[in-house]
Amino acid sequence: MIELVRPTVDLAGSWWEMVDDFGDETIHGSGYRPGDRDALRDPEVFEEWADWLGRMERPDEALPEGRVPSSNRWVVRDGRVVGTIAVRHALTPSLVAEGGHIGYAVSQGARRQGVAREALRLALELAAARGIDPVLVTCDVDNIGSARTIASAGGVLEDERDGVLRHWVSTGAPARPIGPGPIETREARLVPITPGDAAAMRAGERRADWAEGYPREDDLDAVGMMTSGPDAWSPRHVVRRSDGLAVGSIGCFGPPEDGVVEVGYGLVPDARGGGLMTDVLSAMVRSLEAAGLRVVAHTEAGNRASQRVLARLGFRRVTDPGEGAGEDAGAETEWSWARPAGAGRVARVGGVGEP
């Protein structure tokens, strides 16, 4: 029987047997570095280290720079540690490129026996319980066994980057209702704009983590409606995971009225055309609908790209564009869009040509 067990000093003996079985190999998803070996041989130090691994999944735990909250587990078969696995709750640019949401390793003596497949399945359940969907899982391009394991879990290969294969796996996790905190998407983080951010944007300041062209005029209009600190309905920076830059904004036109909320969004020109807006708007809509709200939007009649995004996410046009508004409709003419109740699961992957 395969289990994922929280790190515990009770399993220290078989943990060290597993470490010895790995030899010089990197033990992915373990939090262990060979240089720590001598210190961890002290039982008290080992106990504190195992306890710290467990605390890493607590949102209030202070973590070293570059670390993200993680659910660390040991892969246990018949009472003995045979591997390690970690479910990371968020992605940094380096994790997007290489590490992914889940890192795992199985000792040599337990390979090709279905252990990795079952451990990954259980880790995906952990990710789903955390509301993470989809999950990024990576492996080296020459690790054929791991690539097969990821594929068997439903992994879809996105690309190869510097010898690393990057797969996305859907967990089917329900979205979390929108709140004042960031919203995590496959391609970005939607980070609420603070009063300090808003003041800097209005003053025309440039920040190192703002992309060229940000904020746009529409972004400034959005922050102009802020009256207090960030809440669920405040505008959010769209922070692209690939480089950590704010490349646009998304938010609501105030709190909901009668269970309906309107969203507005946009990206700088260089961030358009790769499906980012579809990914971002999908996550925003899912969070709003998880809060029991109906979502509406408006587009200019000539903004075909934005209309394609809304259509792909199940929105329907609910008003005519107005007399004389056809293919050459003026930019001031607006179309209204709504996502019908029960429209089903929101798509997560955009197509070529989308903003």
Rank of each mutant, 00 (worst) to 15 (best):
S14Y: 04
W16N: 08
W16Y: 13
D20H: 12
D21K: 02
G23Y: 04
T26Y: 04
T26W: 01
I27T: 11
G29P: 05
S30A: 12
Y32N: 04
R33L: 15
R37K: 13
L40S: 14
P43A: 00
E44M: 07
F46P: 06
A50F: 06
D51A: 14
W52Y: 14
W52P: 01
W52V: 07
M56F: 02
E57I: 11
D60L: 09
A62F: 03
A62L: 13
L63Y: 10
L63R: 10
P64F: 08
G66F: 06
R67E: 15
R67A: 14
V68A: 06
V68K: 01
P69A: 11
S70A: 15
S70W: 00
S71A: 15
S71D: 14
R73T: 06
R73C: 08
R73W: 12
W74F: 14
V75W: 01
V75A: 00
R77H: 06
D78Y: 03
R80P: 01
R80Y: 03
V81W: 00
V82H: 03
V82S: 07
G83Y: 09
G83N: 08
A86C: 08
A86P: 06
A86E: 13
R88C: 01
T92E: 08
P93W: 05
L95Y: 11
V96H: 11
G100M: 09
G103N: 03
Y104T: 02
Q108H: 15
Q113V: 00
G114K: 05
G114C: 12
G114F: 04
V115P: 09
A116C: 11
A116F: 09
E118P: 05
L120S: 02
L122Y: 01
L122D: 09
A128R: 15
G131E: 06
D133G: 07
D133C: 03
V135I: 05
V137S: 01
C139H: 01
V141D: 14
D142A: 12
N143V: 04
S146G: 11
A147K: 03
A147M: 06
R148I: 00
T149N: 11
T149Q: 02
I150C: 09
I150S: 05
S152A: 15
A153C: 13
G154V: 12
V156S: 04
E158C: 01
D159P: 00
E160I: 10
R161L: 12
R161G: 02
